[in-house]
Amino acid sequence: MPARGAGGNINSTQETAEAMKLLVPVKRVVDYNVKVRVKADGTGVETANVKMSMNPFDEIAVEEAVRLKEKGAATEIIAVSAGPTACQEQIRTALAMGADRGILIEHDGILEPLAVAKLLKAVIAKESPDLVILGKQAIDDDMNATGQMLAALLGWPQGTYASKVEPADGGIKVTREVDGGLERLQLKLPAIVTTDLRLNEPRYASLPNIMKARKKPIETLKPADLGVDVSPRLTVLKVEEPPKRQAGKKVGSVQELVEKLRNEAKVI
């Protein structure tokens, strides 16, 4: 493995010299099954009494990290979440899936991808992971940005929208889902990867593993401990419901459908 940037590693034995330390950022989001409602006052969406979960792409990221560890390609997995105290639940889920320890960066209020990337950069300076695996997109803000922003701040390569990740030639080989198909990149380490849906199918944590996860450590930090200014750069002026689509009519036959498309909608 090539020499690394921030921090460096002090691995002595042959085995660990080849294996990576992994960091997996996990975000607490409104569960993907919830149909969100816009607040009447237009300031945001209703999140009180709504089911919260780990961002689905982050489950895929945790799963990939655990598989790398099971294959012997990784030594340790650290799950990190930034947000309110309740993010502990998502860190516990990651621990139950197989992560070794957690870090909560406690903050109430909006955290934009740039701020999250700065917080993660500060954690990375302390932990010196070889590989950070994030989700490609959080399903609440739909930003699709944090991984790329973190890679930029660290000056690391990025392999976004990964459908395959393989340690290879002292770095990693990433297959990416792109417009038109797939492409393969070789990245030097340390590196950033973001997950796409087809990378793997995340496991459910077993009950014994959920019990074991309760004993795994979670460290709590504040943005100020990391010296990071997390002030948002975007002000949300309003949040509205998109125009509602009306259900149309049922047609009785294929003939009627084609007739309507030709003569009523005039789209074919």
Partner: peptide
Amino acid sequence: IYAGNALATV
């Protein structure tokens, strides 16, 4: 945002 279930003006 939220899979197009809301539109944010920022």
